[in-house]
């Protein structure tokens, strides 16, 4: 990264490691987020997304490493950092006994906003988050989707420079998911956003750049389209073979041009996913290997890789 772009960085994380017990939740995580960028953390549950976000927001310090936000150290200058952040935790914890507007007023005061500004902003965020009909409702009586909106409303209330959204569309119905994604996209021009998700299309639609995190490590980083392109360097063959799994795996791996083979048991059928270098058609060679071993070749399909496949490949390699 050249000097100019480094100075544009809103968030910079260096060598983050965090232990809950003996096992690290995240390990040597490095990333930067540019001003105005929407960065997505993509990974399955337990990959370390929430841990990373909690460290960025100053909820807990990393065991090792350092994060700066707008050049403030998250641990040393925590208050300066917290002033600049709007945060939506994964479970959307809200004070269920409060009315929506009273809750927003409370959160605004905690962020040190002057009361006149709070009043004006509550009007605005209620409109943006389409909570008009519910501004006097007790939060505990709202559905999950509306609570999510209240959660986003409190996160953007003080017009923070950075928005941190942990799984912003989890557990809400599909229509609300679409609305929430639209809402996040509408916010993108104004501020830096870091969000996490385990849903690939979501990240694809919203984010400028994606970090794929798996078992506490960042395993890939790029724009959604680049990620797809980069992995289009690989084609995929889906082969169904009747034969002993381990031997088939070994044999297929032995075919020149094959980069990787994985096995999947699909309703009793032995499916082998064969990664081959782009542009090489290995169907002929593969069928010959199978037949020469006297196994039965039941089907073979050429699949080019979608982002979902990348995601699956990146996060399920333990099950190979």
């Amino acid at each position: 990264m050249d000097d100019q772009s480094t100075s544009d960085l809103m968030i910079q994380a260096n060598d983050l490691t965090h232990f809950y017990g003996p096992q690290p939740a995240i390990e040597d995580v490095n990333f930067g987020v540019k001003k105005g960028e929407i960065l997505g953390f993509l990974g399955p549950n337990g990959a370390g997304k929430t841990t990373t976000m909690r460290i960025i927001t100053g909820y807990m310090p990393p065991t090792q490493g350092k994060v700066t936000l707008a050049d403030y150290d998250v641990v040393e200058q925590s208050l300066d950092v917290r002033k600049r952040i709007g945060y939506l935790p994964e479970t959307v914890p809200l004070h269920t006994e409060m009315q929506v507007t009273n809750y927003l007023k409370y959160m605004g005061t905690l962020r040190g906003m002057p009361s006149r500004l709070i009043k004006r902003r509550i009007g605005e965020v209620i409109e943006v988050c389409r909570l008009q009909d519910y501004h006097k409702t007790i939060i505990g009586k709202l559905s999950k989707g509306f609570r999510q909106r209240v959660g986003i409303a409190q996160a953007i209330l003080h017009e923070p420079e950075v928005l941190v959204l942990d799984e912003p569309t989890i557990g809400i119905d599909p229509i609300q998911v679409v609305e929430t994604r639209q809402l996040i996209r509408d916010l993108r021009s104004e501020r830096t956003v870091v969000l996490s998700s385990h849903i690939l299309p979501e990240v694809n639609v919203i984010c400028d750049r994606v970090l794929i995190i798996h078992e506490g490590r960042i395993v890939a980083e790029d724009s959604p389209s680049n990620l797809a392109q980069r992995l289009q360097g690989v084609d995929q063959l889906q082969v169904e073979v009747g034969g002993p799994v381990q031997q088939v795996l070994a044999a297929l791996r032995g075919v020149p041009g094959v980069t990787e083979v994985t096995h999947r048991n699909q309703q009793g059928r032995n499916i082998f996913i064969v990664q081959v270098q782009r542009g090489q058609d290995l169907r002929d060679e593969i069928s010959r290997v199978v037949v020469s071993n006297e196994w039965s070749l039941l089907s073979m399909q050429l699949v080019s890789m979608s982002l979902e496949d990348i995601f699956l490949r990146l996060t399920t390699h333990e099950e190979l």
């Binding site: 909690r54 927001t57 100053g58 909820y59 208050l79 917290r82 002033k83 952040i85 945060y87 935790p89 479970t91 914890p93 809200l94 004070h95 269920t96 959160m107 905690l110 962020r111 040190g112 409190q154």
Partner: peptide
């Protein structure tokens, strides 16, 4: 218990 402490502790409050 409710997790609201996460928003409280990430607000600029000492």
């Amino acid at each position: 218990k409710m997790g609201t402490i996460e928003l409280l502790l990430t607000s600029p409050v000492r």
